[in-house]
Design a protein around this nucleic acid. Structure first.
Lengths: 354, 354
DNA sequence: ATAATAATTGCAAACGTTTGCAAGACCGCT
DNA sequence: AGCGGTCTTGCAAACGTTTGCAATTATTAT
């Protein structure tokens, strides 16, 4: 790289006729500066087009104004949305974003955490679908500011987290389906090693139990949040001697697969088969019929996480706050009472354990 | 931030019984090192769990191993896909990614370029839908490695670029539609200030002209690549006294809006209205009917751009390479010959100006 | 006026690394 | 044994900034 030597703090100092430490202090909002010199410095900065070298600032013990974000997979809309809102919130707070994707390789997390927290960033946000890990303990002990974003609530007790009531969301879907009169509800799970998948499965079972419905293991098919697996799952479910009248897919993408299988078999949604998803990705509203699903407050999650991290950076020893954001059942067109039910099933007024 | 002082190169040196410069050289693959010392250093690194401080390395004139990526908007699937593939390619090359979104604010680009190229990154990638700008000229003069990614080809003559034959792609759609027998083809444009939008509009007109079809301005409706505008556009198009038999939307998202409007009016796609999109976002294959569209090689674009940037970093004065990747017409189910055409229109064997 | 206090400033050290330079060790030759 | 050369190695300077310390100057209270 060639060309004009970048202008440094010393150039500004010379131009303004002050020492370079004064320039630094002006730039960092240090209180006791003579107004006259402050003005001269600011003018020189402007004239020379100076901007700070973040590496040097960070090395010298200042802040880097950079936040690290580690995500599991950029490819799905869920992540993309959260990342976007974090990015926007961070931009407002004048922070840069260093993005790291583990591409599903769990073991890379620790490596990235190590690289990033080694002076490169002022704080860390992690959007990972798995449970607590040893490096969080270290981070906590080092008082390094970080925030966990997840869609499940089960976590350690020292990490600041932003999560959603997604377990409740899954429960809500089930309650809705049951209230419509469905008694055989198929469930396509998420990727089993993700805690969110386990939580939704739990909710499925809990709702069944609460309303006194039998749990038929044949109705539960293990997916992985991807289209392919859900496609297979749906076929298996519909091939059952006693197929379900409704299918609850652990995420919207899986629900799309249910749509397609239904269509390929000449089944109409919702007339012949009710379908519910989870996440409310933008596409879900455009599908036909529009998908009934659970909305996760993705934008709010990113914003809350950013705010939480900013607070933690401001005071690294503040107690870990845990923000839980509400999910919302979005009722659209993909569910109706089952074809051959005489009347919608009325759940008892007060189901146990809700 | 508290806790154990991070282990530095000096700690490693002490542990291995060598000088710290030797450690640095080992770590940077310097050739003339005694095998014995190299081993001792590597062992010490392992034992102490050392990893380099990128700020310091970068400050001292080394490489930061960080690449900056400036995108216009993370929210759309197009960008998300390209970013993902860049991220993967970069990870393979052992680079970090600093991501910047301008959120559509054109003027922020220059600011981000300035911040990032000020030592923070070794190279820059820009995914921006607009034309050449002054800061590119500067970057070029400074010999700072950068790559432009765009889906249009018109650019300056010194910037390394990765682009697609998207103009040809639009032309292909039109040729296909015309070959099916459509004579009144509606066009919903992209955001007018994006060059890609202008290129596609040009292609639309060029195809019409090449096949001797009249250009009816009423059939061209200005959109902005978003759902909302396309929805309005479709309604306007279908309200025409002589509505089109096919609609070509400048991107898939807009095509989805066409689907919905058609549905809301009781029109069947493709029986009553043919629809074609552009981009081939993943969702397009799942729609019903599956959308005929133009696939942009998003993954290949990310990879090519990364490779190009790596090459440029290795030799900053190499001549600007321009990679043009082919688009591909993906014929699915959303188009068929118009309802009332007696027979498919046969374009002359050799249309002019193709 | 004078002492005490507060505001303002500059110097120099530090942050963790890379790298030019020079010195020492080692090699194969004659 | 002595010479020129190539390997290895360590020292020290540099990268651009922040910040503790001490010195200087302005302000206030007595």
């Amino acid at each position: 790289m060639i060309g004009p030597r970048p202008v440094t703090i010393k150039d500004v100092a010379r131009e303004a006729g002050v020492s370079y430490s004064t320039v630094s202090r002006v730039l960092n909002g240090y209180p006791h500066i003579h107004p006259d010199k402050r003005r001269r410095v600011l003018e020189a900065v402007d004239r020379l087009g100076y901007s700070v070298n973040l590496q040097a600032r960070s090395l010298a013990g200042g802040h880097s104004q950079v936040i690290g974000l580690i995500v599991h997979d950029l490819g799905n809309p869920y992540t993309a949305q959260v990342v976007q809102s974090i990015d926007e919130a961070l931009a407002r707070a004048e922070y840069e974003l260093v993005l790291h994707t583990t591409h599903g390789h769990h073991h890379k997390e620790a490596v990235y955490v190590d690289i990033l927290t080694r002076g490169m960033v002022d704080g860390l946000m992690m959007l990972i679908p798995l449970g607590p890990t040893p490096y969080l303990q270290q981070l906590h002990e080092r008082r390094f500011p970080y925030v966990i974003i997840c869609d499940h609530q089960q976590y350690d007790d020292f990490s600041p987290t932003v999560s959603t009531t997604s377990r409740q969301g899954a429960y809500d879907v089930m309650r809705y389906l049951i209230a419509l009169g469905h008694r055989r509800i198929g469930f396509i799970t998420g990727r089993p090693d993700f805690i969110s998948a386990a939580e939704r499965l739990e909710a499925y079972k809990a709702a069944l139990a609460a309303y006194g419905l039998p749990l038929d293991p044949a109705l539960i098919y293990t997916g992985d949040y991807q289209y392919r697996a859900a496609y297979t799952a749906t076929n298996a479910l519909l091939d059952l001697p006693q197929p379900p009248t409704a299918i609850f897919a652990a995420n919207d993408l899986s629900a799309f697969a249910v749509y397609d299988v239904a269509r390929s078999r000449g089944l109409r949604v919702p007339d012949d088969l009710s379908v519910a998803g989870f996440d409310d990705v933008p596409q879900s509203a455009y599908m036909h019929p529009a998908l009934t699903t659970v909305r996760q407050p993705l934008l709010a999650m990113g914003e809350a996480a950013t705010r939480l991290l900013m607070d933690t950076i401001a005071d690294p020893s503040r107690p870990a706050e845990r923000i839980v954001l509400p999910t919302e059942l979005i009722i659209r067109e993909s569910c109706q009472p089952p074809a051959h039910s005489e009347r919608p099933f009325k759940p008892s007024a007060q189901p146990k354990g809700e």
